[in-house]
Amino acid sequence: MNEKKIYHLIGADGKSYDSDMPGTLGGHCKLKIYGRLDCPSALRYIAKGQYVQHRVFFKDEETAIAAGYRPCGVCMKETYKKWKTQKNQ
């Protein structure tokens, strides 16, 4: 009766896969944004009952970037600034 919990993560190819390890970052699949699991913006939307149906999880930041997601401007301000600068070059 000691069943392992299975987590559904998004891989670098953008496809879902099952993992026995939880993700370290969350994201929004429609907006293609990733951020911390404790992001105040995401938590506000989740509390309102929004966002949850589009919520995805990533093993790490490299995977989120490879899958085509950008950093959140609220919880990852410095990473977002770097992304924005690179995007505009």
Rank of each mutant, 00 (worst) to 15 (best):
C75P: 03
C75S: 05
T85Q: 11
K82G: 00
L9M: 14
T63K: 04
K30R: 15
K15I: 07
K5T: 09
C39W: 08
H54S: 12
G49Y: 06
G73K: 04
K81M: 07
K59Q: 09
L9Y: 05
K59P: 01
P71D: 02
G49Q: 07
G35L: 10
S41E: 15
Y69F: 10
E61F: 02
L43A: 05
R44V: 10
Y7I: 13
C39S: 06
K84I: 09
L25N: 06
E78L: 01
G68L: 04
K4I: 11
F57Y: 15
S41N: 14
G73H: 02
R55I: 06
G14E: 10
S19G: 07
I65F: 04
G73F: 01
L37K: 13
G14N: 09
L37Q: 12
P22L: 09
G68F: 02
H28D: 15
Y45P: 00
E61V: 05
T85L: 10
Y34D: 12
Y51A: 09
G73T: 01
N88Y: 00
Y45A: 08
I46F: 10
Y69P: 01
W83S: 03
H54F: 08
G49K: 04
C72N: 00
K82E: 15
K4F: 07
F58S: 03
I6Y: 04
T24R: 13
K84E: 12
C29R: 14
N88H: 01
M76N: 03
E61G: 00
N88E: 14
I10A: 08
A47D: 14
S16W: 09
Q50P: 00
K81N: 03
L43P: 02
L25C: 07
E62V: 01
W83M: 08
S41F: 08
C39K: 08
K15S: 11
G35R: 12
E78C: 03
G27Q: 12
H54R: 10
I65G: 00
I46M: 14
D18Y: 09
C75K: 01
L31W: 04
I33P: 02
Q86A: 12
I6W: 04
Q86T: 06
T79W: 00
K82Q: 12
P40G: 10
A66N: 02
G27P: 04
Q86M: 11
R36G: 03
K30F: 09
D60E: 07
K30N: 12
K87Y: 01
W83P: 03
Q86W: 03
D20Y: 09
V56C: 15
I33T: 10
Y45F: 15
L9F: 08
H28Q: 14
Y45V: 05
G11W: 06
S41A: 15
D13C: 11
V52G: 03
D38P: 05
L25A: 09
G11S: 14
M21K: 13
D13E: 12
G35W: 08
D13H: 03
I33K: 13
D38S: 12
R55W: 05
S19H: 07
Y51K: 06
E3W: 06
K15W: 06
D18W: 08
G23N: 11
K84Q: 11
H54Y: 12
Y7G: 08
L9C: 09
